[in-house]
Design a protein around this nucleic acid. Structure first.
Length: 312
DNA sequence: GATGCGTGGGG
DNA sequence: TCCCCAAGCAT
């Protein structure tokens, strides 16, 4: 859960998770959709699938005990160099490094590394430095201290150098680069897309759609959507077409407040998706479903849609 | 090596 | 309001 995610964001999910799946056996036996549902809203949903797969592997291959050896941990889905090192050192006190974003930042400043910390080259260099410093038999507390140090003191912006016990040894501080380092050079920025969401009601059911098992928000359920920032996926044109059919449909953009307003009216019954007419005759399938309102809570919902189910 | 993959909080 | 970015991994 903590991979690329803040502790504050994880905490409530972790607490809830441990109540639902208190043991590896319980998680291994759980239904995949239920696992995804408990992860709903946390992001990076492949982590949930990987964790489920790995825990099943731990039960079937390792008798329910998570391996201590890094080489074995690395064979599990969703466990890479950092997580393998963290489990091996923190849980079993093996002499392994655990270089995460915090440790990269700390070493970049401490050693004045003026290179992109997102590169494999710097990651390798920092791992070597950490390996040299690693106190034999104390890797667990050492790694945790490094990580906590980065999370609490040597923070990304405005590091707390005044309280730092290492301020007299820090290359970045000595050269006045403590706010410039570490260097993070990313690629091109992510383009924005706009979608219209359709709320389509038929008696006491609502039309929903399951996303593909790979890619963005994989396997999550959502309300039907159409691009509304390009000519061939125009939400306004869609509304016009549908009203010409004598149908009552709502087409709104993905703004939570607007969708709450849409839900409050409860009078829609049909929709169009990707230019194809979808009617009450639409057969239920793995992908499309007319879902009774009371069953919403049982499914994993994509992004903002998950927060709307309470409105139904 | 570069890119896709979420979400929410803080400056 | 906008931008940055947070205990990475898979492809």
């Amino acid at each position: 859960m903590l991979q690329q995610t803040r502790v504050e964001a994880v905490r409530p999910y972790y607490e809830n998770w441990m109540e639902h799946f208190p043991t590896v056996e319980a998680l291994a036996a759980a239904d995949g959709d239920e696992v995804l549902r408990q992860w709903q809203g946390l992001g990076y949903y492949s982590r949930a699938r990987n964790l489920h797969d790995s825990v099943k592997e731990v039960v079937s291959r390792y008798g329910g005990r998570i391996p201590a050896e890094k080489s074995e941990l690395l064979t599990l889905k969703g466990i890479g160099d950092y997580t393998a090192g963290a489990i091996s050192s923190l849980a079993y006190n093996k002499d392994e490094t655990a270089v995460d974003g915090n440790v990269l930042r700390v070493f970049a400043r401490l050693y004045g590394i003026r290179e992109n910390i997102l590169s494999a080259k710097v990651k390798k260099k920092v791992t070597e430095l950490a390996r040299e410093q690693l106190p034999e038999g104390k890797a667990g507390v050492f790694n945790e201290a490094l990580i906590e140090f980065g999370a609490l003191l040597c923070i990304p912006k405005s590091p707390k150098c005044g309280e730092c016990p290492l301020r007299h040894f820090c290359e970045a501080k000595a050269t006045g680069l403590e706010k410039e380092l570490p260097l993070r050079i990313t690629g091109k920025d992510t383009p924005t897309e706009r979608y219209a969401v359709l709320i389509c009601r038929k008696s006491h059911t609502v039309l929903i759609h399951r996303r593909p098992s790979e890619g963005l928000l994989a396997s999550m359920w959502e309300f039907p959507m159409v691009r509304c920032d390009q000519p061939h996926g125009d939400g306004a044109g869609l509304r016009h077409y549908l009203s010409g059919q004598g149908l009552v449909v709502s087409v709104e953009e993905t703004v939570t407040a607007e969708l709450k307003h849409v839900f409050s009216h409860k009078k829609w019954d049909l929709a169009v998706y990707e230019g194809r007419y979808v009617s009450g005759e639409l057969a239920e399938s793995e992908v499309w479903r007319w879902l009774p309102v009371e069953k919403y809570a049982a499914l994993p919902w994509a992004g903002p849609h998950g927060k709307l189910t309470a409105c139904l």
